[in-house]
Amino acid sequence: MAKKEKALKVKRSRGERIFTVFNYTFLTAVILLCIYPVWYVAMASFSDSNMLTQHTGLLLLPKGFNLDAYTKVFKNPMILRGYLNTLFLLLVGVPINIIMTSLGAYFLSRKRVLFKKPIMIAIMFTMFFSGGMIPFYLNLKELHMTNTLWGLIIPFMINTYNLVIMKTAFESIPDSLIEAAQIDGASHWKILFSIVLPLSKAIIAVMVLYYGVSTWNSWFWASAILRERQLYPLQVILREILLQNDVTSMSAGAAATDAESIAMSIKYATIMVATIPILCVYPFVQKYFTKGTMVGAVKE
């Protein structure tokens, strides 16, 4: 008769049990503190505007379920235009980011590269120092890249931090694979696209997330170099609505006494409209995120 193996239970001390309870309690409180602002905005966006202005304290459920704020937001033509411009920046800009960062990372990950160390030092220097905002803008102006969406793509093709992460990930690929491919006569292009990138799906997923979130949330340079409102990405439109109280196009027709309450509901709905799409992307890359970040961690 086969002996049944019994799992060994490690008896924890009283101090360890107290620490575990405290740890879980503390982390739960932190999670709730992070989630509640998002939950509040979501519930407020579905609330009746008049009831919302009269409410004080915590908001766990909508006050008078109402979709008028979302109806008004989606009737604003600038919201749709902002979405289209942001999608252009994502669908065109992020692939360019990934390709250019991959090329730079592959070059820097090879061991026998002439002047590799000085080049790496020059690249790292840009993480801490730059020419300044005004020279950067003047360069864009001389290159005729102001007032165009390409001015938000080409100058930001490579992020130095992301380049270093991807370089470190490429260095973790066994040299024997690269050497075997070179013996078989494979070129560097063949090695990069047939060996290195297929083995680096995790770090590529992380880079897509990093560049995608950065592109989605960026607004400063868009507001600085774009003069035509039709070119504004979504975050610039959101900034106008939240900071400049520009909700006149969405609250038109409302009574003067209701204008303030309607404007508040519209702001909450606009935040949700601008936030939900990027939140929906994360679950698809979550399984790669931890692995890719650890593989691409900067090592001594």
Rank of each mutant, 00 (worst) to 15 (best):
M124D: 10
L27C: 03
S200C: 06
I278W: 02
G82I: 06
Y282Q: 09
L52T: 02
K9P: 01
Y232P: 03
V295W: 01
L90E: 02
A202R: 09
L234S: 06
R110H: 02
F65H: 00
W221I: 06
P174C: 07
K117I: 05
L279E: 03
F220R: 00
I121H: 02
L61K: 12
F65K: 06
Q230R: 13
A122V: 11
L152A: 07
K167C: 06
Y137A: 09
I204Y: 09
E142L: 14
A254Y: 15
T126F: 07
N162S: 12
T290N: 13
I191R: 03
A269C: 00
L242F: 06
P198S: 05
V236Y: 04
M166G: 04
K141L: 09
S45D: 07
P174S: 10
L108H: 04
P135K: 07
M294G: 01
S194L: 10
A297F: 07
K72W: 04
V73E: 05
F129W: 13
I266F: 02
A44R: 10
S45T: 03
E142N: 15
L89T: 08
P283Y: 06
V94W: 01
F46R: 03
L8G: 12
Y137W: 04
G57P: 00
S13L: 10
A269E: 00
S249H: 05
Y70W: 09
W150P: 02
I18E: 08
V295H: 01
T293F: 08
Q286K: 11
S176R: 14
T270C: 11
H188Y: 13
Q54G: 14
G64Q: 05
V41P: 08
V92M: 08
T20E: 15
L209K: 01
S109I: 08
K11E: 15
S265D: 08
M207R: 03
